[in-house]
Amino acid sequence: MAIATASLPAAPKSPFRRVLTFFYNHPNLTLVMLLLLPMLWMLVFYLGSIGGLLVHSFYYIDDFSGVLQRQFALRTWSDLFTPSHFDVFLRTFSMALAVTLASAIIAFPLAYYMARYASRRMRGLLYLGVMVPLWSSYLVRVYAWKLILADEGIISWTFRSLGAQGILDAILAIPVIGGRSLSFSFLGMFLVFVYIWLPYMILPINAALERVPKSLIEASGDLGAKPGYTFRKVILPLAIPGVIAGSIFTFSLTLGDYIIPQIIGNSAPFIGLAIYRYQGSAGNLPLAAAFTVIPIVVMVVYLLLAKRTGAFEAL
């Protein structure tokens, strides 16, 4: 836009026009004006609140009176780093990782088919097919799973009808991931998490794949690459930012969810649930605040790494 700064013949100017010209000649000021409102919003409502919460993590609850002490102390932090809490971290991060990997594996073929092979009409229908579950109530879907996984539910019924009760029992007998029934096991919770966040993985992968120029794939073929080689060397690297963008959602959403672990699973606490309980029924806001620092730090580091791969463009 270098040309525009050259002086133009003065047109008859209304005050409105003069203001606009002034801004045009002062791009930095324009920038400030554009960003003023959004920045105020983000700083006041968002960063302000997060900052306030972090300050709370340095307060503590008095052991005897149970009253919040607004004094700087590190007691809350030492309460955070206890073995039982490490279990919570480990459980949550393993779940988030497993859910992210599984979502990527299930989402990729669907996103790839949509972007590369589906006809225009088909693509519209598939898009709708991905969006409808995303738009239907999260809670109703979680409860639908409860009823799929429960003892008297659809999966058990299917296994029983097929005379394969033994297989289900064997799966449930697996230590750690098994349990009383699917709806009281980590395996069940894992399935529900994957299900609920799957669209958040499909959409960014699809967006990234749709941006791969057709000419690039043809060029690779013309240069003698077999389809598999083209896929590995051309398509996959260009799809990675989409996968990473999706993983931001699946990882973070699993990290903080406190509703699914309440409804499905053996009520072992996850980070989200622990924060919810400390904040609510336990009335220990400082400890809840300290707890939130773990996902905040993890996600900020993750975002900084993800940003480098260009994942933000695929969000």
Binding site: L47, I50, G52, I248, S252, Q279, P295, M299, Y302, L303
Partner: peptide, 16 residues
């Protein structure tokens, strides 16, 4: 900064 509210777990923004 603008990605944060959606990238951080909702419960963090919520209790903040």
């Amino acid at each position: 900064l603008i990605v944060l509210p959606i990238a951080l777990p909702g419960i963090v923004s919520g209790i903040a």
